[in-house]
Nucleic acid binder design. Structure first.
Lengths: 184, 184
DNA sequence: CCACATTCTAGTACCTAGTCCTAAATTAGT
DNA sequence: ACTAATTTAGGACTAGGTACTAGAATGTGG
């Protein structure tokens, strides 16, 4: 006997999770059943065909790249007054948290604040020289982090930008960034 | 006249870059040429068919998830003495840099240092309370960043971890992290 | 042991988004 | 006007499927 239907199906779920690139033919051979059986299983389990699986993976990763790369800012900038102030919003998704406890990894909050501090300065090449930051309280999955940045010191090529990130009215992160206009 | 072959082809490259999900049929309509022309173009330019493109994207994102998630550390930890010291290596790839100037975005260096500082502490739930960091010099595409972390102060649930990141013998990043064991 | 249900297998027609190939038609350059 | 480059058309074939029908094998209850 080859395995009951239920066992096969739960094994199937695992297989596709571990390796989404498997074709029906390959798993059929693995389970020693016909290709049609695998297809019926996929129907019942609501698992899409390989091409669709890959497409969804590609979509997800593409969306990430797109939201990161064009503006090169983490979080969505909702208002920006160059050389003065700005606000960005980052909703903590599953990608941002530790699996075990659903707490956001610090560097995402840092990245949000840092890229906002850099975006605020009106120049082609802006880099961070130094920063002092505090993670006031842990942020968890689903929370919407709103970062407010403002320039507090302005010199020809050096800026001090203060960033405060809140969830609702709750302060979660504070940072002071020393950024500079670099000569390209 | 519809556009010269060269213009069409360079537009094609851009289109596929902007949206890898396009089928030949769709771009053919966009360029107002036949599907075969697009296929010849793809051949000449060495652009694979859509399904292959998506597959490669899926592969890349799959690999990333696999290499990032298990340890939840950015960079590869090459040595680790719990509660004492550790070293991790991060090679700056195209994903880490600003497109314009090939300079690594600060938060990747921060992420490497931060996750090493957290990994070093022997406890289930470790979070960063605060940090003071300095980006000593910009890091560019292809450079291999080696972060050395050591615990310089140890209290029951609070640690100060100093991190220095170098490219060869060149200091590029310095950070002092205040991390703590949290009660889960 | 029979009957009936569940489960599995086989096979056909069809789909998309292609490849590979041949051949004809069109356009451009000189 | 002639040749060469470019474009288009079409046919045969492919992978990895969907959707559907029908039959075979394997249970399981009575």
């Amino acid at each position: 006997m080859r395995l009951s239907k239920k066992k096969r199906q739960s094994q199937l779920i695992e297989s596709f999770q571990k390796n989404p690139f498997l074709t029906d033919e390959e798993v059929a051979r693995q389970c020693d059943v016909s290709i049609q059986t695998i297809r019926l299983d996929r129907m019942e389990l609501g698992i899409p065909e390989m091409r669709e699986r890959l497409k969804h993976m590609a979509e997800r990763s593409f969306d990430e790249v797109r939201s990161l790369s064009p503006e090169e800012v983490i979080g969505e900038v909702v208002s920006l007054e160059l050389d003065h102030s700005g606000v960005s919003v980052l909703e903590i998704s599953a990608d941002h948290v530790f699996e075990r406890n659903q707490i956001a990894r610090g560097h995402y909050l840092f990245a949000q604040a840092n890229s906002l501090a850099v975006a605020i300065v009106n120049a082609d090449l802006v880099l961070t020289r130094s920063a002092a930051i505090r993670f006031v309280r842990p942020v968890t999955l689903g929370e919407k982090c709103v970062a407010h940045a403002k320039v507090v010191q302005k010199q020809p090529s050096r800026f001090q930008v203060d960033v405060e990130t809140k969830v609702l009215d709750d302060m979660v992160f504070q940072g002071v960034f020393d950024v500079y206009r670099a000569t390209n």
